[in-house]
């Protein structure tokens, strides 16, 4: 088995001051680090609040979880990977033993929220939309600038600026919205989601470990073994289904596309003259159908269950399966028809 540890070994310690002061690192990354520091501080606030909370039946476990998560989010950039790994292990322990609990909350009563709705009215949509509006603005304004080179960075920074603007608007609307209220309300929401907050990143780590261990190659070899040589339609079906299965295991179609294309897509489909634009792209979006059906895609399918306060853990997946399957079928038929119609040749 070939592990590539160069990227871990090449890690060097850089102090936060040196990092932020380095003019070669682009502004977008630096702004994003500031966002991570704010996120970390929210978690650390939750840790301190729960450590002191006598109403929380598991105040120590809860504090350990949020504290460790907060440190990794805020300062993970400057810590050695080993320390980050240990911190992640530390936060997983109370999570696994169900020692991360909700303490005292200050949820507003429905009378309170009704009163505020009557008072503030439709103006409340301005701060509600500010996150989306700033995401779009930043994406449009900065996508071509060197300062914020990638669009997703620009949008993430934009969303965060939108959050700050929304906070200012809410304070202007009603002075009762003090910083203390914002912190307590965000702690309430964090506690509602609970240990699932770490799940998206943890799954990404598992995906990396699977990839390093060569899981993808083994699956591609196994799946490829069932295709009769030279039968392109069967190759297309297996390639698409392979993408779905592998994506469901990894929780991410991006992790699947390279392995599946090298192992199946090229030798059984593309090498026989199928159009690479159609096959390459639709293989990826076939994988997206797998993302819709797996609990491994936690940030899309499991975290929302907690955010929406649903009863069934698989409540979102249940409503996605019967859409994902026809969309997958559509794509397979599309690829086969495109091939059979004779639109061959490499683009």
């Amino acid at each position: 088995m070939n592990f590539d540890w160069n990227w871990v070994i090449n890690w060097e310690w850089v102090s936060p001051f040196a990092w932020f002061g380095n003019p070669d690192i682009n502004l977008g990354l630096k702004l994003l680090e500031i966002v991570f520091i704010i996120m970390g501080l929210i978690c650390i606030y939750a840790a301190v609040k729960n450590a002191k909370d006598k109403e929380n039946a598991a105040s120590i476990g809860t504090a350990v979880f949020w504290g460790a998560l907060g440190i990794v989010l805020a300062t993970g950039r400057y810590l050695p990977p080993l320390i980050n790994g240990l911190l992640i292990f530390t936060m997983a322990v109370p999570a696994v033993f169900r020692k991360v609990k909700i303490g005292k909350t200050n949820a507003p009563s429905s009378e309170q929220t009704k009163k505020q709705s009557d008072k503030i009215g439709m103006k409340i949509f301005l701060p509600a939309f500010s996150m989306g509006i700033f995401a779009i603005l930043f994406a449009l304004l900065f996508s071509n600038e060197s300062a914020l080179p990638t669009l997703s960075q620009a949008a993430l920074v934009g969303v965060s600026v939108g959050v700050i603007v929304a906070i200012v608007m809410l304070i202007v609307y009603d002075r009762k919205n003090t910083p203390d209220i914002f912190m307590k309300d965000s702690e309430r929401f964090l506690s509602m989601i609970g240990p699932l907050c770490m799940l998206p990143m943890l799954l990404a780590s598992l995906g990396a470990i699977f990839t390093a261990a060569g899981v993808g190659d083994v699956i591609a070899t196994m799946v490829g073994g069932i295709i009769p040589y030279g039968n392109v339609p069967v190759g297309i079906i297996v390639y698409a289904l392979g993408m779905v299965i592998f994506t469901m295991i990894m929780g991410n179609a991006f992790a699947a596309i390279t392995v599946m294309t090298v192992g199946i897509g090229f030798p059984f489909v593309l090498a026989h003259g199928a159009n690479p634009v159609v096959i390459g792209m639709l293989a990826l979006t076939s994988g997206y159908c797998g993302t819709l059906m797996t609990p491994m895609a936690a940030n899309f399918n499991i975290v929302p269950v907690a955010m929406l306060d649903m009863k069934s853990n698989y409540g979102v997946i249940k409503q996605q399966i019967y859409i994902a399957l026809p969309v997958l079928l559509f794509q397979i038929v599309f690829m086969i028809l495109f091939y059979n119609a004779g639109w061959f040749g490499h683009a």
Partner: peptide
């Protein structure tokens, strides 16, 4: 987590 910083208070304000 960043978005949570404002959503709870948005809901509090109706």
């Amino acid at each position: 987590i960043m978005i949570m910083l404002v959503i709870g208070t948005l809901e509090r304000n109706g």
